[in-house]
Design a protein around this nucleic acid. Structure first.
Lengths: 158, 158
DNA sequence: GAGTTTTCGTTGAGCTTTCAATAACCATAG
DNA sequence: CTATGGTTATTGAAAGCTCAACGAAAACTC
């Protein structure tokens, strides 16, 4: 923002890579979202919530923790849990020892919905990414994403 | 959906990579979106539209073509262009030879807004991705994203 | 050329996300 | 104790996206 000297624009080569990246991530995201919406009646974001809950002890998590795990803001999660509650897939309950807190817990119906949705979702993830790349590419991707994550966190912390 | 035999779940190793991927892409997307929203008053999706228009002859593009370039549905683009029009950054005009068609054209104000927004955006893209990776990683990423894109397209075509 | 199909872009309704504001509660310093 | 500041979760409004439906114009078929 200070623009100390001059903007270092992306070279044509860098730009090609960047656009390929954005296109790939957007297309994959859109594809997975559409698949889950039509086959399971929920957007990916809600699916993630159910997954995280299902893997937690007691199938329950505190809201803030759940938000972290889902890369979500608290507000967004709160709205989402309200919707999931209305669908009967999640319930809310209080927390012992901290009366501010609230927990979201997966219901049996929620678990069933997840169990039904999961195979189709995993199949798409396999087809579009895991099985579409070589083992070497997968490992490279892992390192790349780690590097990006820490760069973003560094940047977000100013 | 047919579940021919049994779901091939992700191995723990694959799952780590997959989650790292989703986390990285979501965090980067959120970071760039927040940056543009606060610094330039527009979401990333709108910025992309302005970029594509600015690079086109006459700073104008047909709606369908613009939607393709922005990885957007026509509906979404139509709504977005309406908003951009209200902001005074884009205008619509007809097409010679096809009276169904419509073009979106960047206004001077739109170009100015883009010119103001671009440096900060590019800086973030550099800091979070281009400069955060080695040249080898960048090239690997390019191939990976290409592979993912074609896998998604194959899958979306059934 | 009349009828059918396809393409183009838009619209409205409903859903999801963002942002700012808020209420309730905890923790700590004095 | 109480005042101050931080944390937790929610809410409502506004913005953005998805989906289905639509009207209009082009393209195709016979």
């Amino acid at each position: 923002m200070a623009d100390p000297v001059q903007t270092r624009w992306l070279t044509p080569h860098e730009q090609r890579i960047w656009r390929s990246y954005t296109a790939a991530t957007m297309e994959l995201q859109a594809h997975l979202d559409r698949q889950l919406r039509t086959d399971a009646g929920m957007p990916v974001a809600y699916y993630e919530i159910l997954v995280m809950l299902s893997e937690s002890p007691g199938r329950a998590l505190r809201m803030t923790r759940l938000a972290e795990l889902c890369n979500s803001s608290r507000s967004r999660l709160s709205h989402a849990v309200s919707a999931l509650e209305k669908a009967g897939w999640v319930t809310r309950c209080g927390i012992a020892g901290d009366r501010r807190g609230a927990m979201a817990q997966l219901t049996d119906a929620g678990y069933a919905a997840l169990a039904e949705a999961a195979p189709g979702h995993v199949e798409e993830v396999r087809a579009c990414l895991v099985d579409a790349l070589t083992p070497e590419q997968l490992d490279a991707l892992h390192e790349i994403t780690q590097a990006v994550r820490s760069a973003v966190q560094r940047r977000a912390a100013e």
